Computed example of a mutant assay.
Amino acid sequence: MPDSTPAGGDDDPSPRILVCPDSFKGTFSAQEVATAVADGVQAAGGRPTVLPLADGGEGTAETLLDAVGGRWIGLTVRGPLGAPVQARLALLAGGDTAVVDVAAASGLPLVAEQDRDAERASSYGTGQLIAAAVAEGARTVYVACGGSATTDGGEGAVRAIADAGGLRGAHLLVLSDVTTVFEEAAVVFGPQKGASPAAVDRLTHRLHQLAGSYPRDPRGHARTGAAGGLAGALWAFFDANLTSGIDTVMDAVQFDAAVGEVDAVITGEGRLDDQSTQGKVVSGVLRRAQGRPVYICAGQVALPSDAVRAVGICAALVASTIEELCQAGAGIARISAVEQRPW
């Protein structure tokens, strides 16, 4: 549930601000960003409500666990290049739903830049996490597909699930912030995973071969290319549902109810660019802000000011440290105090 810090009663004129950022990848978690911004809002006399978000990328499990409660389960799994890694999954309150971040077992940050090998990297460890969630009693497993090092078409994960005895009736819900189709996974994501142009060609050929051998052909279906085709494999073998990560998370944390109680919204991410409005946290917040003014805090802002305004963002503030995030929150609270509008 949202963490609200009231500054007065119902007739308090101080601005009510929903603080709902994504993580700043590799720097701060969504909770850390939200806490810093909220501290600034409160210091400036505002009333912050803290509601960290995620879009199906790294940090989704943490965000959902913080929102609804539950516990972490840690285990040793096979990393992207085969070496063992320590990973964890979230078993949410009630015990029948789990969340697996692909990045936890098969993530790009687990591989040193000089060792990245998109042709060799395997999603086997992610399959181990999914199987472990099922073994813990989960009947629904959310699989958050962002940040993978792999382009194996999900073959490794499918094999790991089979090695563990299958899903035993559990259902998979695959969360992503992209709509890329299976056969384009290597072209779109391979280069950032260390694939040369020649490797991209080989990977694409392999994806086509895999697709043709799967129980259902994932080619041409939106979102099947997420995590190097992992989403498509889970869809093909286990009838997984493929859906928007940000909308699923926003529903789970009751975003619509929270935004209906505030005067303004502050969201954020590590880099604000032309991808931010395409399936990521910023896009979801803009769509579901119910007319409230939306402000952005970002470690980097790669959009010109006119483009920022064109998508409905009131202002984008650069903030790459905890101190700067706090200052940004204070500044936005002061603006909101002047520009408050009745709802």
Rank of each mutant, 00 (worst) to 15 (best):
D12N: 02
T27L: 11
A298H: 11
R202N: 11
A149K: 02
D152Y: 01
V37R: 04
I17F: 05
L81P: 08
D11R: 06
E155L: 10
A93K: 12
A257V: 08
A93I: 07
P15S: 09
G26L: 08
L51D: 09
A240K: 02
A211N: 04
R223P: 09
L129Y: 01
E113T: 14
L175D: 05
A211Y: 06
D274K: 08
V311W: 09
D274N: 11
T140I: 05
V111C: 13
C20I: 13
I332P: 06
T321P: 04
G329F: 02
G57F: 01
A198W: 02
S244Q: 06
G212S: 02
L175T: 05
G147Q: 05
G166I: 12
V158C: 04
G299N: 07
G137M: 13
R16H: 07
R334F: 01
P293C: 06
Q290R: 14
P21A: 06
S213F: 02
R216F: 02
S14P: 00
L207Y: 00
T35R: 14
D101E: 13
G46M: 07
D39C: 03
G125L: 01
R341I: 08
V187R: 07
R223S: 05
L53A: 03
L92A: 12
C145K: 01
V311R: 06
